[in-house]
Design a binder for these strands. Sequence first.
DNA 1: TTGACATTACCGTCCAGACGGTACAGTACT
DNA 2: AGTACTGTACCGTCTGGACGGTAATGTCAA
Lengths: 207, 207
Amino acid sequence: MSILFWQQPYDESFRMVADIPTTRDKILQAAAEITKEVGPVNLSLDAVAKRAGLSKGGLLYTFPTKAKLLEGLVEQHVSEFDQSLRREEASRNFGPNSVVLAVIAVYRAEFVCNEPEPSGILAAIANDPGFLEPIRRYNKQLLQRMRENAADPMLAMMVFLTIEGLRSLKLFEMNVLDRAEQIAAIDRLKNLFEPADPAPVETPAVA
Amino acid sequence: MSILFWQQPYDESFRMVADIPTTRDKILQAAAEITKEVGPVNLSLDAVAKRAGLSKGGLLYTFPTKAKLLEGLVEQHVSEFDQSLRREEASRNFGPNSVVLAVIAVYRAEFVCNEPEPSGILAAIANDPGFLEPIRRYNKQLLQRMRENAADPMLAMMVFLTIEGLRSLKLFEMNVLDRAEQIAAIDRLKNLFEPADPAPVETPAVA
DNA sequence: TTGACATTACCGTCCAGACGGTACAGTACT
DNA sequence: AGTACTGTACCGTCTGGACGGTAATGTCAA
């Protein structure tokens, strides 16, 4: 029911990073796409199977129940962010303000690369508010870490809120700000911690 | 389909402000409550009718289709905010920064009074992402007005984002910050525009 | 004042269709 | 032989919504 990070049927750790997507990945992406297009309510297993290019039986082989699929959506969302975050923290040697700066860096990269928001979590939440719990826990912990590691905890909180604002705008595809404005906002945040930014890259090439 | 603010069956303008709730109001509140409890996907007309204390037939008399009910949810959300905002703007005589300050004031009041988030909009969005469009339009216009009216447009944008962050945390009941912290964050924003705040009222009486 | 009809605000029932899930036989690759 | 599916058929449940009724209230002419 609410068991997040459940055991996967097989070990994926041997797979290459930028390899061809697994069936699992294809299903998750299909679910996110459908959610974005027709809304979480209309996310049916039939539709996901069709979009992912497999049969319903095949889908239910990978995800035995719809709840497991939704769990997969949430798990992917959280773990992908966390991995990026830890990487950024490590590159800053876990020094002062490293958590805040890492958070900023992760979102900056996301906005620069114009990565689509995996709106699948909306589907999960819409089906069962209980899926919010792990996200709640994660965010609580994240904010805690940001504050403890920051020179100015209050400022860290403001950064958290601003980022959260950007994130929610993206989640709802609320294109109120264009990409440049979003990046400018993030850089403004960054400058609160690193006042001297010698060469702010305005429009870096998209890899 | 996407006609917001549709004609209501009768003129409610004669009704007193703090009067007994109309059937319409009861239905809308019931829908919001159910959404919060069991998630937008499980918002059924039967459940709403039961919660609101009338039959399904009666519900469908007030809202001929489910889509109309969802429209009602969105419309209520937007119009209630807008009314509060205009009132706050007027009380500041539409002077410089009045829009930004009004937005801050509205949310401050909301957090101080601990008003519950009408999570009904989540239900609307979950059923049909098209319901985001009017909200998108409104927010775009709001941000525009905040910027044009503000002494520092960039700062106005940061305020908008921070408020948006607080709002999304509340929408998802992401109780990461306690009430005092949220109010402190809002006051910090306010002080960016009104540096000298002589007597910040902590818990003003609800009028 | 009364009878005829209209409108409002509902109730209770019914139904076609969609959905999640099961079951199982078959198949292609490793 | 096992893994990872395909494809079809099916079941029970839930859902939106159509529909026919009904009680209360209002309107208006005779």
